[in-house]
Amino acid sequence: MNCRYESINFRAVAVFSLLLLTALCSAQKKQKPLSVIFMIGDGMGISQVTSAFYFGDSEPNFTKFKFVGLSETSSTSNLITDSAAGATALSTGKKTYKRAIGMDKDSIAIPTILEQLQKNNYQTGLVSLTSITHATPASYYAHVKDRDLHEDIALEFLKSNVDFVAGGGIKFFNKRKDGKNLLEKLSENYRIDTVSLSKPVSGKKNLYLLAQDELPNKVQGRGDFLPEATQTALNYFSKTKKPFFLMVEGSFIDWGGHAKDAEMMTKEVLDFDKTIGVVIDYIRKNPNTLLIVTADHETGGASIGKYSEKDAATGKEKEIGNKVQVNFIDNQHTAALVPVFAMGKGQELFSGIYPNNTIYHKLAEALKESGIKIK
């Protein structure tokens, strides 16, 4: 046996292993924190997503996801949730009672993903079609017992430090029962625009309040506010080297279900899908980003069924084979599972079937892999 040869070989393997370990540790240290774009189609169940395949003019952006899951949406007080409890589960990782904003089932305030990432030097943003004090956006920065406390939620916004916000809700800031004009206080830290989605000012927080309450829906002629506001936010965040967390809500998918208005629902889904396309384009250029698309609940018990017309000759209903229509069970939320789509770093974590609050914990795992610990 050549002991000298074996000794040299062992030393060579040991040195190589040490070098490899050093390289891996160095790579981990240099890894950039993950940016996150979290999109919520309010009221968007499987049928709502399906409508994008039949009522649009092109292939939906939903088809570009390879990792898809399903989420169960119940609250702690009701099997059928509302947007407040649903969004709070997504933002905090804890299920709670209906109407709660950023609070657990015992009405104790709990930190949100947005607040936790701010402590990790993240930029943060919110885009909504409703008032920014509405249930879904509020669940990312506020902590109140009931979603209808809009003026209290507006006070919470004063200390939120969100960098970019676009939506409605002016009246909750300057036409308040207490007579306060919160816009004056906010103007100390924000550049505020109540007229248009103008170019944001770099190095300053930007707040767009473009309606007294909610913005118009698509049937009313809203235009491309959602994709444009999302693009504006992404442009704003791209000006710095900081990671960011952006929540985008497609608010009126839910309202279409409540109104049993098939045209509103389908147009809002297509608008949301168009906005997804804006985000996917961003991810292709910025791969250190994770996109999650989901819903807080389903609304209307929507289904995509056969389309019939009255036959002129016989007067009888006749199915039209190349058309479908939207049907609703009722005008309320349902307990239906909702889809979860993921793209980017950590996308594989979101496959499967799980409770809605689990999405937060999966996101925490993805962030941990990039060096960010939020719990």
Score class of each variant (00 low, 15 high):
295 A>C: 08
313 A>W: 10
278 V>P: 03
324 V>N: 11
351 S>F: 13
167 G>W: 02
232 T>Q: 02
146 D>I: 09
204 K>E: 08
180 K>L: 15
104 D>H: 10
310 K>N: 06
171 K>C: 04
232 T>R: 00
226 L>R: 04
187 S>G: 07
74 S>C: 06
267 K>C: 05
137 P>L: 12
337 L>F: 13
197 L>Y: 06
17 S>L: 12
30 K>D: 04
205 K>S: 00
52 A>Y: 06
278 V>D: 00
114 L>R: 09
96 T>F: 00
261 D>M: 09
204 K>N: 13
325 Q>A: 11
242 K>Q: 04
138 A>F: 13
138 A>Q: 00
52 A>E: 05
201 V>F: 02
233 A>D: 06
235 N>I: 08
257 G>E: 00
181 N>G: 10
268 E>M: 10
103 M>I: 11
255 W>A: 13
339 P>E: 12
338 V>N: 04
349 L>S: 03
163 D>N: 12
311 D>P: 08
99 R>Y: 11
239 K>H: 15
360 Y>S: 07
289 T>Y: 11
286 N>E: 04
285 K>Q: 08
50 T>D: 07
269 V>R: 02
217 N>A: 06
127 V>G: 01
7 S>T: 13
83 S>D: 01
99 R>D: 15
8 I>K: 10
344 G>I: 07
346 G>I: 02
120 N>L: 00
198 S>H: 13
100 A>D: 07
254 D>H: 13
33 P>N: 13
33 P>I: 00
322 N>E: 15
103 M>T: 07
44 M>L: 12
294 T>V: 11
110 I>D: 01
